[in-house]
Simulated scan of single mutants.
Amino acid sequence: MHTSKIFVLSLLMTGIGAGVQAQTLDKVKSNGSISVGYREASIPFSYLGSDASPTGFGWEICGKIVDEVKKVTGRSDLKITTQAVTSQNRIPLMRNGTIDIECGSTTNNSERAEQVAFSINYFYTGTRFLVKAGSPVKSVEDLAGKTVVSTTGTTNYQVLRRVNDERKLGFKLIGAKDHNESALLVQQGRAEGFGMDDILLYGLRASSRDPAELDVVGKALQVEPYAIMLRKDDPEFKKLVDGVVAGLMKSGEFETLYKKWFQSPIPPKNVNLSAPMSDELKDNLKAMSDKPAT
């Protein structure tokens, strides 16, 4: 076959493949399985429990979405496969079809929306700092000239780099592969503070060997929404996901789940995060917006 014809056929086949892959419900019905991405240490959204299985607030909501997928596709026998994801690989794994949905602690922002889609926002958080208890660090300004760590591939890392430049703080910003490693660097004294979403810091502190050894400090540098991540250009699946989230918000079940995971003792150490619902989230229980952070 002529080279130009082969090229055209290749483009057509690529387009067809992308179209099929993008339609999650068709893919799931055909394959008889759905792949759910989870985080290993994003307490209380998505993390490994004491039995080494995924659990958490986001994980439970994903379970309800999967139940709806079973109904819509008529696949009561639907197989659920799980895939651990990191800050660095979660978007590539969504785009290449390895995972079909991700319920973790992923910020919904405009930049990411060019590559993936997001559900109605289901949490709001801001960048603060995990430090050793008794540390003189109480604000980002107190970190001037010191070493600060954040997890590579997160929006927090970018925020900290920007704040460091804008305020001329001169702190050394280093990257860690995941949240546990970032927290460990603080515990070992190799970093003065770990900048990350405050709710994740509360979770890491709660699951640490001695929660009293760590503090969460500082005013939030910015407020960002979390949402369930799914593939871009798949309006049918987004409608289903949004429908489940909206249904939970309207029925009051969302608030029940919130109290279970944010205001009650949770595994693995039965520590209560005691995190009240933010005004932004309260407002979104009514607005049910999927508006991204800028």
Results as ranks from 00 to 15, higher is better:
Leu11Ser: 12
Gly17Thr: 06
Ala18Ile: 12
Ser33Gly: 06
Ser35Glu: 13
Gly37Asp: 07
Thr55Cys: 12
Ile65Val: 15
Asp67Lys: 10
Val69Arg: 01
Lys70His: 02
Arg75Ser: 09
Thr82Asp: 13
Ala84Cys: 06
Gln88His: 08
Pro92His: 10
Gly97Glu: 02
Thr98Gln: 13
Gly104Ile: 08
Glu114Ala: 14
Gln115Ile: 03
Ala117Cys: 08
Tyr124Asp: 00
Gly126Trp: 03
Thr127Asn: 15
Thr127Ser: 12
Lys132Cys: 04
Val137Cys: 09
Val140Arg: 00
Glu141Val: 12
Gly145Leu: 13
Val159Ser: 01
Leu160Thr: 01
Arg161Gln: 03
Val163Tyr: 01
Arg167Ala: 08
Lys168Gln: 14
Lys168Tyr: 09
Gly170His: 10
Lys172Trp: 07
Gly175Asn: 12
Lys177Pro: 07
Asp178Asn: 15
His179Trp: 07
Gly193Asn: 00
Leu201Trp: 07
Tyr202Cys: 07
Ala212Phe: 03
Gly218Met: 10
Ile228Phe: 05
Met229Leu: 13
Lys232Tyr: 05
Asp233Ser: 08
Glu236Ser: 11
Phe237Ile: 07
Leu248Asn: 02
Lys250Trp: 02
Thr256Tyr: 04
Trp261Ile: 01
Leu281Trp: 04
Leu281Phe: 06
Lys282Gln: 15
Ser289Ile: 03
Lys291Thr: 15
Pro292His: 02
Thr294Asp: 15
